[in-house]
Computed example of a mutant assay.
Amino acid sequence: MKIETAKRWFLWHKWTSLICTIFLLMLCITGLPLIFHHELEHVLEEEKVAEIPEGAQKKSLDELAAAAEALYPGERVRYVYWDEDEPNKTLFDVAPRPEAPYDSSKYVVLNDYTAAVLDRPTTDGVMNFILRLHRDMFLGIGGMLFLGLMGIVFVIAIITGVVLYGRIMKKFDFGMVRKYKSRRLHWLDTHNLIGIVTLAWATVVGITGIINALHDVVLFAWQQGQLKEMVAPYASKPPLEGQYASLDSALLVAEKAAPDMKASIITYPGTMFTSKHHYGIFMKGKTELTARLLMPVLVDAENGTLTDARKMPWYVITLFVSQPLHFGDYGGWPLKIIWALFDLATIVVLITGLYLWVARRKAAKMQWSRLNEKIEEYDEA
């Protein structure tokens, strides 16, 4: 590699690293507890078990939804959720209107057998604060897109770092750390070694982070694409008013349309994941991988008949796969521990990178100061 070319690669690596380092440090520090967010939530929040009275029968979804709405007079359910880790429970999102902003939502968890209130989750917890900071720095879509841009800059820094390390390793043994040289060289070699060891992980997390930052863009593309096609026959019809068809019957229709899947979320008419005329019932697979992939089934909320059911387009599937991979949420504890170790190693890379930049600037200032002193001595002589 020519010297001029090497300098250009070095400048690209230096400035891309400096631009994104502070934000990456924030993402790595907040990402560490998010790797274990399921486990930490169980520790930080009191979990109530859904007790099943002897001989009790499961309540219908319609009964549970009515019980949730009764807790907040004048408001209606707009989303229904299930969590496999919390059996015999159903979570309802109740709001003044379907299109109301998320901060107006009230959440309530009901026992499937007794309709008793088990919990009223809020978004004020520690884990939600960390997630918001990690996801968009409390700046909404602007913050998400900015962090996505920092992800792109990070990937460029990785590529330029690999090119530079390859040039260095032509002269030295792979993994070399010059312990007995200057402190700066010691930390430079440590920085390079840890950086190359974490290369694959950092690339995966960086790319999946960029994809996740496009969450709202992907949602908009799906709304304007597949969803719009699915509800096209209803485009000229007025929004539904009054009572909707039974939730239970709509769920049966969805299960019949996707017999090898199970319901994960039900969205009410008027919400962003469906039309003003349909229940959007999102079905998921039953394996570790397919459980991450949702399939929308649209059921006419007026008469309870099937309107359409389609597999999600590739760009939505890419997002669904990227979200859990970003946090190592695929292989249970072993993968989470590996993700956490690499996260800590990346924090070391970022801190040593900052140290090297500061040390280099100090060294340059000292050299310049010494040069000025020699010039002054020469002038005095």
Rank of each mutant, 00 (worst) to 15 (best):
Y107K: 10
E54I: 03
W15H: 11
R184Y: 01
F172G: 03
A359K: 01
N88D: 11
E4R: 10
N372L: 15
T274E: 13
I317K: 02
T90W: 13
A202C: 11
Y72N: 06
L34T: 15
I158M: 13
L298Q: 02
E45G: 01
E41W: 13
P296T: 01
Q226R: 03
I338E: 01
I130A: 00
M312E: 13
P53M: 01
W357C: 11
V218H: 15
M137K: 06
K170M: 00
R120F: 03
L354A: 14
G161T: 09
A381V: 13
I141H: 11
L335F: 02
D300V: 08
G161R: 07
L354Y: 15
I375Q: 10
K170I: 00
F138P: 03
Q226W: 00
Y113K: 04
D329A: 01
C28S: 06
D379W: 14
V231E: 01
Y81W: 11
G206W: 03
T271W: 12
T287F: 07
L188M: 06
H134F: 03
V43T: 07
L164E: 12
T198R: 02
A56K: 08
A115P: 00
K284E: 12
K58F: 09
F282I: 15
S236F: 10
L319T: 07
D216C: 06
L199V: 10
I29W: 08
K171E: 06
Y279E: 10
V155K: 08
D379F: 15
R76S: 04
L27A: 04
S105E: 04
D62A: 12
Y72G: 05
P313N: 02
A232D: 02
Y268V: 05
L350G: 08
E75N: 07
H215E: 07
Y279F: 11
E302S: 09
P233A: 09
G332T: 06
M312Q: 06
T190F: 08
G285F: 09
R361A: 14
L188E: 02
K179E: 00
V299K: 01
G166H: 10
L133P: 10
A67M: 08
W222C: 04
S246Y: 00
K262V: 06
R76D: 03
K262C: 04
L240F: 00
L298V: 07
V80H: 12
L354N: 13
E54L: 04
D103W: 05
V204Q: 03
T305K: 09
F282E: 14
L219N: 14
W15P: 01
T274C: 15
D379N: 13
T267P: 14
P334D: 10
I29N: 03
T90F: 12
F92Y: 12
K228W: 01
A258K: 13
D173V: 00
F23A: 08
A56V: 06
D83W: 14
Y180T: 11
L32P: 09
V231R: 02
I3Y: 04
A381I: 10
A345G: 10
G125N: 13
R132Q: 11
L227R: 03
A95M: 10
E51P: 04
E302M: 13
L71T: 08
E69S: 05
V126W: 11
K179W: 08
D62T: 08
S182H: 00
M1A: 06
K362C: 13
I347F: 14
V299Q: 01
A116D: 07
E373A: 15
M127L: 02
V205S: 02
D260R: 02
F282P: 15
L18V: 09
